[in-house]
Design a protein around this nucleic acid. Structure first.
Lengths: 199, 199
DNA sequence: TCACCATATGAACGTTCATTGACCTGTCAT
DNA sequence: ATGACAGGTCAATGAACGTTCATATGGTGA
């Protein structure tokens, strides 16, 4: 039932947002009454925290795995990272969006935990970009402009792309999550000016 | 005072979300009491609607202008569109984020208006992408994969990039809004596989 | 000077909120 | 059979919510 509460709450937070979702709505969706939630969680906030924690742990683990699978070539690493992140945010779009938008409603200490997790994810991408630049595999300088695009800006551009795919992706659409992940990996490689993947 | 209410409400909706922002908080930020809001707007919802309407009208106008400035070459058009959209969402990040996230709390008819406006923006990008593909200026096919990335997917990727820049951009940071817009225009061109801009 | 109008106030409305605590009811090990 | 216990119900709490309304006030044109 704890798990059931988490899933129904995530769905409702996704549809209406945390403040607009009452404890009564959550528990009604589970077929019980409001007071019963407090046998499993100390507060409505704790339910949100549990959802966010699970989502962040899972996505960080998936990214680490993707990084390993990419071997030591930065372009392959980037492709794997983009694939994993896009997959996560399309296959688990409800938790993904909630994690992205509702952390503001947590108490400061727990909100900080979420921000730290987001920062760690960004660092993973930044390191891969730095390695690819050092190896001459990526090109981020506009020939017309004096300064190249900073690595953190490029990382954020790619992250926003992947993360927000969950907002519009629909599993019943013409493109499957896996196809989309492949297409995004390709687009990200073009975005950083990576050459052809052979060699 | 009507304008003041709009601006303070936008800031509060941005910080806490629409449902968590009470009429009393909005009016207190303007130095008046709750009842006074109803001399200017019929409801809290109408305040949100007014904010969203203003933002969408302005952003659509800016995009149309950018499209004209791009002339008849799809790559220049795309660069201008990305520049305008990034500028809008960084310079007016508060309204931009509110428009992107809080429309769910509007009544169905007005929510539909917002979705229609978002769809029109996406269509502008899609048309430019289609023209660039037809002219052979963009390359969206992965040589390893059978199918090319669909135009609507690419449009969404670029839109998410630009729109969500407003989430992390800080005016006091090292990169100015205008620099960021230029960098994003460059990244978007690389993303669609556009060749060098000369010729 | 006066009437008017826009706009502010502050109290009150009914509703809903998250949370609590007393109570009930099955299940299971002893 | 019995006792413990996990997990449910139900009623009640005070606070906060959006909104209404009668009333006050200050500036403006006649």
């Amino acid at each position: 039932m704890s798990r059931r509460i988490l899933d129904e709450a995530a769905r409702l937070f996704y549809e209406d947002g945390f403040p607009a979702t009452s404890v009564r709505k959550i528990t009604a969706a589970c077929g019980v009454t409001a007071g019963s939630l407090y046998n499993h969680y100390q507060s409505k906030e704790e339910v949100l925290y549990a959802i966010l924690k699970r989502a962040h742990e899972d996505s960080e683990r998936l990214l680490e795995e993707g990084l390993l699978r990419g071997g030591d070539r930065a372009d392959r690493q980037l492709a794997e990272l983009v694939r994993e992140l896009t997959l996560f945010h399309t296959e688990r779009r409800i938790e993904g969006l909630v994690a992205r938008t509702e952390w503001r409603h947590l108490p400061p200490e727990q909100a900080k935990e979420v921000l730290d997790a987001q920062r760690r994810v960004r660092r993973i991408f930044e390191r891969t970009l730095e390695r690819g630049l050092a190896a001459g595999r990526f090109r981020l300088s506009d020939p017309r402009s004096s300064r190249p695009a900073p690595v953190d800006v490029v990382a954020k551009a790619i992250l926003d792309m992947c993360i927000n795919a969950g907002q519009w992706f629909r599993p019943e659409g013409t493109v499957s999550a896996r196809e989309l992940a492949d297409q995004y990996a390709f687009l990200a490689l073009q975005l950083v000016g990576a050459g052809p993947p052979d060699a």
